[in-house]
Computed example of a mutant assay.
Amino acid sequence: MPEEPTQPATLPSGIVDECSALSVDQLQELAKYAESLAEYREREKRLEGEDESSDEAPDDRPDEVPTGASVTVKEINDNRYRYWQWRDGDKIKSKYIGPANPDE
């Protein structure tokens, strides 16, 4: 029988205690939410200029993409795609560039 996973040392014990009381379905929903939240926060961080590790921006920036836009890579169904991303008020807008690997 497999062993129960070890609690990550970086998580507060209260979170771990709460998670142990959740059903399998609730844990799966929590995992999806946590992944989405992490992606959102990474994107926010990039858009605010706190993350200096950006991909090189293509030279062919479309007219509708503002000069402050950054390039982000999104994985969808095990494929990686590049998008322009920028903030427009409270919204984050995106425009598809192409595959992250030009050979794809």
Score class of each variant (00 low, 15 high):
Ile15Gly: 02
Ser13Leu: 06
Glu18Gly: 01
Gly89Cys: 10
Pro66Gly: 12
Ala57His: 02
Glu4Arg: 14
Asp25Ile: 07
Thr6Pro: 00
Gly89Met: 13
Asn101Ala: 02
Asp60Ser: 07
Ser13Cys: 02
Asp60Cys: 08
Lys93Trp: 05
Ala21Trp: 06
Ala69Leu: 14
Ala34Lys: 00
Asp60Trp: 06
Asp78Arg: 10
Pro58Phe: 07
Glu42Thr: 05
Ser36Glu: 09
Thr67Glu: 13
Asp88Ile: 04
Glu39Gly: 10
Pro99Ser: 07
Arg82Lys: 13
Arg87Ile: 11
Gln26Ser: 05
Glu35Ser: 02
Tyr40Ala: 05
Ser13Arg: 07
Pro12Asn: 12
Val73Gln: 00
Ala69Arg: 13
Asp60Phe: 07
Ala31Val: 04
Ser53Asn: 11
Asn77Cys: 04
Ile92Trp: 03
Trp86His: 05
Glu35Cys: 00
Leu27Trp: 08
Glu64Arg: 13
Ala9Asn: 01
Glu104Gly: 01
Thr10Arg: 15
Lys91Val: 00
Gly49Ser: 07
Pro58Thr: 08
Ser23Val: 11
Thr67Gln: 12
Gly89Asp: 07
Glu35Thr: 02
Ser36Met: 05
Ile15His: 04
Ser53Gly: 03
Asp78Trp: 09
Thr72Asp: 04
Val65Glu: 11
Glu50Thr: 04
Glu18Gln: 09
Asp17Gly: 01
Gln85Pro: 00
Val71Leu: 11
Ser70Gly: 04
Glu4Cys: 14
Pro5Asn: 13
Asp88Cys: 03
Thr6Ile: 14
Gly68Lys: 14
Glu35Gly: 00
Ile76Thr: 05
Asp88Tyr: 10
Lys74Ser: 09
Leu11Glu: 10
Tyr33Cys: 02
